[in-house]
Computed example of a mutant assay.
Amino acid sequence: MDAQTARLRALEAARALFNERGVQAVGMDAIRTASGVSLKRLYQLFPSKEALVEAVLRRRDEAFLAEVAAHAERAGARAPYDRVLDVFDHFAEWFAEPGFRGCVFLNAHGELGGVSAGVTAVVREHKQAVRGYFADLVDELGAPPALAGQLALLADGAMAGAGVSGSPAAAGQAKEAARVLMDVALGR
Rank of each mutant, 00 (worst) to 15 (best):
V130H: 00
G113H: 03
R124T: 12
K127S: 09
L137P: 08
G149I: 05
E125R: 13
N107Q: 12
V123S: 09
L153M: 12
P145D: 11
A146W: 12
D136E: 14
R131A: 05
K127E: 08
S116E: 10
L106K: 08
E125W: 00
L112A: 12
V130F: 09
D139T: 14
Y133P: 00
D139M: 02
G149D: 10
G142Q: 07
V138L: 06
P145R: 15
L154A: 04
G110L: 05
Y133M: 13
A152E: 14
N107G: 08
R131G: 07
G142V: 12
L147H: 06
P145H: 11
L154P: 09
A117G: 15
L147A: 04
A155L: 15
H126P: 03
F105D: 02
E140T: 00
L112C: 10
T120S: 13
L153G: 14
G114E: 09
A155I: 02
L147Y: 04
N107L: 12
P145K: 12
A117N: 05
A155D: 14
V130N: 02
L112I: 02
D139P: 00
G149V: 12
N107F: 01
G142Y: 03
H109W: 11
D139A: 14
G132R: 12
A129F: 00
V138T: 10
L137S: 01
E140Y: 00
L153T: 15
A135H: 09
L106S: 07
V104G: 05
A121Y: 02
V138H: 08
V138Y: 01
A148K: 04
V115S: 15
N107P: 00
L154D: 09
L106G: 14
G149C: 11
E125K: 04
T120R: 13
P145F: 04
L153A: 15
D139W: 11
T120E: 12
A152N: 14
A152F: 07
V119L: 06
G149H: 11
G113A: 07
H126N: 11
L151R: 11
E140F: 00
G132P: 04
E140S: 09
Q150W: 09
V119W: 07
G142L: 04
A146E: 14
Q128F: 03
S116K: 01
V130I: 14
P145M: 03
L151M: 08
A152H: 13
A143R: 02
H109I: 02
F105Q: 01
E140I: 00
V115G: 08
G118V: 03
E125Y: 02
A146D: 14
V115P: 00
P144I: 07
G132Q: 06
Q150D: 13
A129H: 10
A117T: 13
A146S: 13
N107D: 08
S116M: 09
H126F: 14
A155G: 03
L112F: 04
V119K: 08
V130Y: 07
R124H: 12
D136C: 00
V119S: 05
R131W: 01
A135G: 01
